[in-house]
């Protein structure tokens, strides 16, 4: 564990809490892509099946349980409790276009052909693109609530900090996981446009609106 990874995990946690609080406080999931949240729940479920097989540390296990529980809580809020506020008309990204390539890619490029490893690989590839339905929704409506943009920023910053952590680990431990690194870089690049607008607009107190 190094400071970059810890900061990354904290950003990840903050993102999830911000999203849950936003939905809970406003009693609405307007502007939130339920499809991205389904994909994230799938990411955590397939990655953290190792909770039953490998123990890394108490920190790891607790965080995994939090990520799993919060992702299903988010789905419950969107699809059950505040279903009436769910903006399904704008949440039209076809997730099979992400799921099928991720399944194929995880069968082609993996560290090992064991069920748990294949699920882990799939979860890494899927996480890289899971935000696309949300970004698609923002681009469709042309705007995002400020709190939603904070959520997206924290979620994007998390993987960007992991990249710094991987560079650090490469030099200090000679540790490198090619699959996670390449997927993590792609994941971060997908947020690049958003980061730019967030920094130039939201941090200056303006609304998050895409240029017309």
């Amino acid at each position: 564990m190094n400071i970059f990874r810890l900061l990354g995990d904290i950003c990840h946690l903050v993102a999830i809490i911000v999203l849950l609080l936003k939905i809970w406080k406003t009693r609405s999931c307007a502007g939130i892509s339920g499809k991205s949240q389904i994909l994230f729940a799938l990411v955590y479920t397939t990655r953290y099946v190792d909770l039953f097989f490998t123990y890394v540390s108490l920190y790891n296990s607790v965080m995994k349980v939090i990520f799993l529980a919060s992702s299903y809580a988010t789905l419950y809020l969107i699809y059950v409790k505040f279903k009436a506020t769910y903006d399904f008309n704008h949440d039209t990204f076809r997730i099979e276009f992400l799921l099928i390539p991720c399944v194929i890619l995880s069968l082609l490029i993996t560290h090992d052909y064991s069920p748990v490893e294949l699920l882990w690989t799939f979860s890494i590839y899927l996480e890289a693109v899971a935000i696309l339905p949300q970004l698609f929704m923002v681009s469709k409506t042309g705007e995002a609530e400020t709190i939603t943009s904070h959520y997206l920023f924290a979620l994007g910053a998390y993987r960007a900090l992991y990249i710094v952590n991987w560079i650090y680990r490469y030099y200090t431990e000679s540790f490198i996981d090619g699959i996670a690194v390449v997927a993590g870089i792609i994941q971060t690049i997908l947020y690049a446009d958003f980061f730019y607008l967030y920094i130039t607009k939201v941090l200056k107190g303006k609304d998050f609106k895409l240029p017309a």
Partner: peptide, 10 residues
Amino acid sequence: MGDIVAHDEL
């Protein structure tokens, strides 16, 4: 496919 990597990250 390369070495098996221990997944100690989240």
